[in-house]
């Protein structure tokens, strides 16, 4: 199976809708252990992404993801702006001028995105950040390449997001709380969960076709 520009756009639009819906939920999570803007930041950024890509015809997935990354980079700010921005830019470079991709391409692009997040944010697994969702999900995809079970991705992503609850934050704003960060889901892990759940949701459909 191949994933085309239509599917990637669909994913980004669905992700945008989800983030608009969950804006307050993400903000509540960030109020508990951060500064209460993660929902606002993500909603602001993806609203711009949605407008941008809706009104542009793309010939390559690389161009589509690059626009997404640049929009996030220039509209979000905070910690999540450079991280999600970098992720999409790295994925864009990885995919380049293909107009459709295999699951292997996609998985490699997401690996590149994760590398970008880690290089930019210098956080590691179990620091209670978005990486705690990204890394296990991408490991699963890498290890299962052409036989990815998208329901398993959803399950895993959810599980890893929930698991951030028990962690003590060492990076990002929540780190100032030390032990008091325990007991709360990391907001970036929550938005990353939407990222993967919406992706899985779209690709499940593609595969069925």
């Amino acid at each position: 199976m191949e994933v085309g520009i239509v599917e990637v756009k669909l994913w980004l639009q669905k992700l945008n809708r989800k983030l608009q819906q969950e804006k307050e939920h993400l903000t509540d999570l960030d109020q508990a252990i951060g500064d209460g803007d993660h929902g606002l930041n993500m909603a602001r950024g993806f609203k711009e992404v949605s407008i941008k890509i809706e009104n542009t015809d793309y010939e390559t997935i690389g161009a589509l993801l690059k626009d997404t990354g640049m929009t996030l980079l220039t509209k979000v700010g905070g910690a999540s702006g450079p991280l999600y921005g970098t992720a999409f830019l790295k994925a864009a470079t990885s995919i380049g001028d293909k107009s459709s991709v295999t699951l292997t391409d996609l998985s490699e692009a997401l690996e590149a995105a994760l590398e970008g997040i880690k290089a930019r944010g210098k956080a590691n697994l179990l620091d209670k950040t978005m990486i705690d969702v990204w890394e296990p999900v991408i490991l699963y995809m890498k290890e299962n390449r052409e036989s990815i079970d998208w329901d398993e991705v959803i399950r895993l992503s959810n599980e890893k997001m929930e698991a951030t609850k028990e962690l003590e934050a060492r990076k990002g704003r929540a780190a100032y709380l030390g032990k008091r960060s325990i007991g709360h889901i990391d907001p970036g892990a929550a938005s990353s969960n939407y990222f993967f759940v919406e992706l899985a949701d779209v690709l499940k459909g593609v595969i069925k076709e």
Partner: peptide, 12 residues
């Protein structure tokens, strides 16, 4: 100047 309590973006 970023948004309220949100660091400004690299382009700015």
């Amino acid at each position: 100047a970023g948004e309220v309590f949100t660091s400004p973006t690299p382009d700015q």
